[in-house]
């Protein structure tokens, strides 16, 4: 296993000895991983390798059986999802998880709930001026983000009426409402047609250029090889390789476990 050369502040995310056991099944086995700041990090591997489980442990949805997770130098292993989100970690899901009866703009606005809330419900009810100011600011920001991810024209539509690609965009917009330092994207390109995929990559690159680091799980090798600086490969819960795209493509173990001998890079 590789040892990190960097100290906390240089890495947005550090995972040490991460293990998840479901009864007798070891879904993730002693994984070490480091995501440096200003890096697009991809997590790849065959189905059932433990990629989504790893992501769920990082953002606090699942409790790790063992291991530590440092987010921007702070230990978040025992924190809940909402606490981790407040610290600036956004997430999108493999099978879109939107609030289906709400409109697009309401979905995006909900992403900023914690940034635009001070105190509890009582304070909201008593302090008219503050609550309407927050509501106004939240809506403005959500509209700007809706424009950014390309769903502004349909912002008042109920989100479940949108085509799949637009729903994915809405979910990304919701994650961006947090002003995240890091976004975890679970298969962002899955189910998108080539045009939508190109658009999504374009927007992801803009998000990255805006100062947000990205970590993604992806099966589409064109996407992975073209945009990531670093790749971690998981297979049966273990890390089998880590490195730059070019190294990964040549790694015999990765080819055997995942890419297949017929994979031809298109860079």
């Amino acid at each position: 296993m590789t040892e990190s050369k960097y100290t906390g502040s240089e890495n947005i995310l550090e995972v040490r000895g991460l293990t998840k056991r479901f009864g007798g099944l070891v879904a993730v086995d002693n994984v070490d991983m480091t995501v440096k700041k200003r890096e697009i990090h991809s997590l790849i591997g065959p189905n059932g390798a433990g990629k989504t489980t790893t992501l769920s442990m990082i953002n606090g949805t699942l409790n790790p059986s063992e291991g530590t997770i440092l987010f921007d130098g702070e230990d978040i292993s025992a924190r809940s999802t909402d606490q981790v989100a407040k610290m600036g970690m956004g997430r999108t899901f493999q099978n879109i998880k939107l609030f289906s009866t709400l409109t697009v703009i309401e979905n995006i606005m909900l992403g900023g709930f914690c940034n635009y809330t001070k105190g509890g419900l009582l304070r909201f009810l008593i302090n008219f001026r503050e609550s309407s100011r927050y509501e106004h600011e939240m809506r403005e920001k959500a509209e700007a983000l809706a424009d950014f991810v390309g769903v502004y024209a349909m912002k008042d539509k109920v989100v479940s009426d949108l085509p799949y690609g637009r729903q994915k965009m809405t979910e990304l917009g919701r994650a961006l409402m947090l002003d995240p330092k890091l976004i975890l994207l679970d298969e962002p390109a899955a189910g998108l047609n080539p045009t939508e995929r190109a658009e999504f990559i374009d927007i992801m690159m803009k998000v990255y250029d805006g100062g947000t680091d990205l970590m993604l799980i992806e099966h589409n090798m064109d996407v992975v090889m073209n945009i990531s600086n670093m790749i971690t490969v998981l297979s049966f819960g273990r890390k089998i390789a880590e490195g730059a795209p070019k190294e990964i493509q040549k790694n015999p173990e990765v080819i055997k476990a995942y890419l297949g001998s017929e994979y031809k890079p298109v860079i």
């Binding site: 953002n59 606090g60 949805t61 809940s80 999802t81 909402d82 989100a85 407040k86 956004g90 997430r91 899901f93 998880k97 939107l98 609030f99 289906s100 009866t101 709400l102 309401e106 606005m109 909900l110 992403g111 900023g112 709930f113 914690c114 940034n115 919701r174 994650a175 409402m177 947090l178």
Partner: peptide
């Protein structure tokens, strides 16, 4: 909106902080 969010998709609520 947060109340409705719990009804619509409980898994995504906490990722919104």
């Amino acid at each position: 909106r947060a109340f409705i969010a719990v009804r619509d998709n409980v898994d995504a609520v906490e990722t919104c902080g």
